[in-house]
Design a protein around this nucleic acid. Structure first.
Lengths: 141, 141
DNA sequence: CAGAATCCGCGAGGATACTG
DNA sequence: CAGTATCCTCGCGGATTCTG
């Protein structure tokens, strides 16, 4: 683990102040950043976005198979939210039977890249985290 | 919104394959990345980490005041998890009355920087997301 | 096929009181 | 002061059935 200098810590503090400093404590509850993140950072949404990043376009039931274990209800809910926020597009083909295709928007792709960045970071440190967890568990008995 | 090229999309797909391709679908449920993320990306944990990034060291009740609205139970739970995973350190001073201080580890600082990166991205696009949301809501009636 | 509707369980999280 | 211990509720998410 590379050590973080005092200077870097100061920079971070400054950045936090810039980003959140203008907010009152009671407003932090409704912080737009958390609001935005909350809707697209849950377990199912991330999986949906990952699969749509891997397979360019997927239909409802295809997604349901890929996103192992998700229910109809939750899948359609998440898709609505993700469409509403602009992460993906929904295209309906009025054939018989009906066909609906989902794919990431440019915005969705942009988000996906951020997620992958974070995932890489997590991957780098996950062993260390697991070790920490074990050590802590043993220390607690 | 800058357009994303087909080439970039391919790169992303490749990266996804590299990171997740070796996993079976049923294993995605227990993906270590999601496991790690889940514990440190919830609403309260992020606030705790943010405040500890801004104030170098805080005691239990100080945190409780800063992290507006959190309950005793949840705060102590989150602190345990975050300590267990190595994001922060807990130092107990056996005075009377007792004193306990929390502060970020280097690892926690590293995570904080990732969070801030993501926040900056969200900030850049939050207006657009809100606009999308409104447009979608109106379209649905 | 792509969802909507309904019902239900359970577990995270809140409020409060208590303790070393 | 720094947390436990309890109790309770409320809403997410799962399973199933139904429909255009």
């Amino acid at each position: 683990m590379e050590t973080i200098t005092e200077n870097q810590k100061l920079k971070v503090a400054k950045k936090i102040k810039k980003m959140f400093g203008h907010m009152k404590r009671s407003e932090m509850e409704y912080c737009p950043i958390r609001d935005v993140m909350a809707l697209a950072s849950d377990k199912w949404s991330i999986l949906i976005i990952l699969y749509l990043g891997y397979y360019p376009v997927l239909r409802f039931n295809q997604l349901k198979k890929k996103v192992y274990g998700i229910s109809n209800k939750v899948l359609s809910e998440r898709l609505k939210v993700l469409e509403s926020d602009g992460y993906l597009s929904r295209t309906l083909y009025p054939e018989v039977p009906i066909r609906v295709e989902y794919e990431l928007t440019d915005f969705g792709h942009s988000y996906l890249q951020k997620i992958l960045d974070l995932s890489e970071w997590v991957t780098t440190y996950s062993d260390q985290i697991m070790a920490n967890r074990k050590k802590y568990a043993n220390a607690q008995g």
